[in-house]
Design a protein around this nucleic acid. Sequence first.
DNA 1: ATCAAATTAAAAGTAATACTATTATATCCT
DNA 2: AGGATATAATAGTATTACTTTTAATTTGAT
Lengths: 232, 232
Amino acid sequence: MEHLGTHIKINVNDNLFVKNPDSSDLGRRIVSEGVMMIDDMGLEQFTFKKLANRLETTESSIYRYFENKHKFLLYIISYYWHCIETLIIFNTANISEPEKQLEIVIDILCSDDLFTFDKDSLNMEKLRKIVISESSKSYLTKQVEQENKEGLYLGFKQVCKRVTGFLDKINPAYPYNKMMGTTIVEGILHQTFFSWHLPTLTNRDTGEDAVCIKLFFYQMAISTIKQKDNGR
Amino acid sequence: MEHLGTHIKINVNDNLFVKNPDSSDLGRRIVSEGVMMIDDMGLEQFTFKKLANRLETTESSIYRYFENKHKFLLYIISYYWHCIETLIIFNTANISEPEKQLEIVIDILCSDDLFTFDKDSLNMEKLRKIVISESSKSYLTKQVEQENKEGLYLGFKQVCKRVTGFLDKINPAYPYNKMMGTTIVEGILHQTFFSWHLPTLTNRDTGEDAVCIKLFFYQMAISTIKQKDNGR
DNA sequence: ATCAAATTAAAAGTAATACTATTATATCCT
DNA sequence: AGGATATAATAGTATTACTTTTAATTTGAT
């Protein structure tokens, strides 16, 4: 996976934090250590109290940055998707064939290679593990519609939109490119989770799971949207 | 959707409860009222205390039936999948063409019609809403592998297996039928959730969502697994 | 360099959650 | 009728998810 160096700045929606954690040392430590801890113990076991202890600070200091644990989750997930979108833009920019662009996106979504945006900051491998294991919880809540209005899911939605955009270039006549786009993005996450924890639900190649998941979704997308008469 | 009448008995894994809620009036009321409340207020707001108040009983009486809220969720979701499996078995039994069988399964998974297993008991429409909105949380936890070993996800896994079985009949040579099976089952749930709450992520037909989701997944499955050379 | 403003630390407090435990009463079974 | 089991009533605990207050420290603007 590409290294984009230290010069790329990822901006998430302002509504995701009380005070921008990127504006101070404590803020950045909250985010990076928070990612470690959620990956370690899972979202339900993670608390601001435990994080405060680890950072030798106090709960109330953390509450200065994030309204609550849920917003913290939304923040780091949003950050992840903005990174992914940046990678997509960079890696597909000079490609003319949309099939190739689709392949690159799927490749990015399946990749577990580390890629760094700001030196020493977030551990992207752990962040990806969190996204795979916890991100559904970010919108599976009674407040989805409110949070959607506030733009808290923009990162994810923009990535889905990019995928849908490539599909539209491959076959603008296929009527379900949005559903296909989200099915690819979400499906890759879920199949990856299954390959880790519930392998009887997936097919595994010998060796690396990513290869098989990649191929599956790429062929699925191409076969479906290029098929004459699909979508009636 | 078919009515299977009152004579069908759904059995879930014993590990999902402390005392079988089907064995007493209080137990059945816990389950049926619990379903109502989770649908109303969402899983996070739902507590055994609130349920006890509603039923004019006590928390400790509920703990006699279910170890905790998570196990309660697993129980009702498992119940749902066992119902779905029963419907699949009944409705595909006399069908010879596997394509038609696949269509029927997808139809069942997309249907929001009420179907009743035991009179006056569970509200299946609300249970389906819970499955769509909360079921991912049942396995997105640090204890997945342990709970899987205990058989707590069998209902879901058996439905996936049925779908995969039909795909295998359509094209036994396609190597990713398991992934396709779970992608269909999970994808239908997620796309339905999106159509309800995040509609910019889906395509909507005029009128009913189910029609479009049905068609999308059926065509996707058929196009992909019948395509020569897919899966290398 | 200084003063005000903002930030963090320290400490305490609250309401709710997710349980566990104890005892008493009612019901069911043989 | 006697013993087991189920439920009700009550109380209690540890933890979570915060909020509040005050004091000490840092920062930044003139």
